[in-house]
């Protein structure tokens, strides 16, 4: 469905994408993973054909370089922060529906799908970030394209909006749409992706399955456990004796856990008869390098 061969993008003296080759099959959900500047957005811009590039790139069998407009016709695109003209939601959707040659009868079902029907007469400038992203998704879905490309779609959303948005994309992927999204949120990748392309410094560093990402990158998921302070000494002793690394933070402790061993610290504490008040998982990359206080 998407084939990139030796994709390269140079900006003056900077090489944003360096000889990247990959294939994405129909129905896959592929995450482009990488830090800021890794080349994720550049790769997406190339896929959309909105900037020049070296190498070959085909979307649905169409050469992006030769027929960018035709390639874009089979892609629904959701940017990190969609910018719209100062119109109402319904006017905005109508405008893009005309450009995509979509019948007006398609507009209301799509607005319903992203739960914007009741807001259709609101001006876009009055919408929250989450609603704007849903509007961008509505526009992306107008022509019922086989491919969805999303550039860090949840980067500016609150937690609840992130969860809703990811759930919607997951459903669309399960319904058969090919999804390509860039992200540096581990949770998002684990939930949504079937495969991960890891970019670093413009190069395709490696590709892997989502659950392999933490180990391959040396990242951790952190298990946060809340234990009553009266048991902290016993808890630290139990964790020390079983060889766990951990960091204390107030009433809770952060324990790095591998993808297939997430329950082990809990089991260890249970064995030591230490009552657990609560626990949660936190994406490890957010903690790495941060100053987490020790007791």
């Amino acid at each position: 469905m998407i084939v990139a061969n030796h994709l390269t993008k140079r900006y003056a003296k900077t090489t944003a994408l360096d000889d990247v080759t990959f294939t994405i099959e129909a129905g896959e959900s592929v995450a482009l993973w990488g830090e800021n500047g890794a080349g994720k957005t550049t790769a997406i811009r190339c896929l959309l054909g909105v900037q020049g590039f070296e190498g070959d790139l085909t979307v649905n069998g169409v050469s992006v370089r030769k027929a960018g407009k035709s390639a874009r016709a089979v892609i629904g695109y959701v940017p990190q922060e969609a910018k719209f003209y100062d119109l109402s939601i319904i006017e905005t959707v109508r405008f893009y529906a005309k450009l995509k040659r979509v019948a007006t009868t398609r507009i209301m079902p799509v607005l319903e799908q992203v739960q914007l029907t009741q807001h259709q007469y609101k001006r876009v400038s009055m919408l929250s970030g989450g609603m704007k992203q849903r509007l961008a998704l509505a526009i992306a879905l107008l022509a019922d394209p086989p491919i969805l490309i999303l550039d860090e779609p949840t980067a500016n959303l609150d937690v609840a909006a992130q969860r809703d948005f990811i759930r919607t994309i997951k459903i669309l992927n399960q319904a058969g749409k090919t999804v390509v999204f860039s992200s540096h949120r581990l949770d998002e990748v684990l939930v949504l992706a079937s495969r991960v392309l890891v970019l670093a410094g413009g190069k395709l560093s490696f590709e892997c399955l989502p659950h392999e990402l933490t180990d391959k990158l040396g990242l951790h998921r952190w298990l946060r456990i809340w234990v009553n302070p009266t048991h902290h000494q016993d808890m630290r002793q139990a964790l020390d004796e079983n060889g766990f690394r951990y960091q204390m933070n107030g009433h809770s402790v952060f324990v790095p856990v591998a993808g297939n061993e997430k329950g082990v610290p809990l089991w260890t504490l249970q064995q030591a008869n230490i009552p657990i008040e609560d626990f949660d998982f936190v994406s490890g990359e957010l903690l790495i390098g941060q100053d987490v206080n020790h007791d």
């Binding site: 874009r72 940017p79 910018k83 719209f84 003209y85 450009l99 995509k100």
Partner: peptide, 11 residues
Amino acid sequence: GTLTYLLAQPV
């Protein structure tokens, strides 16, 4: 940023 979004459509 509206231009970038517009150019990402089939135009």
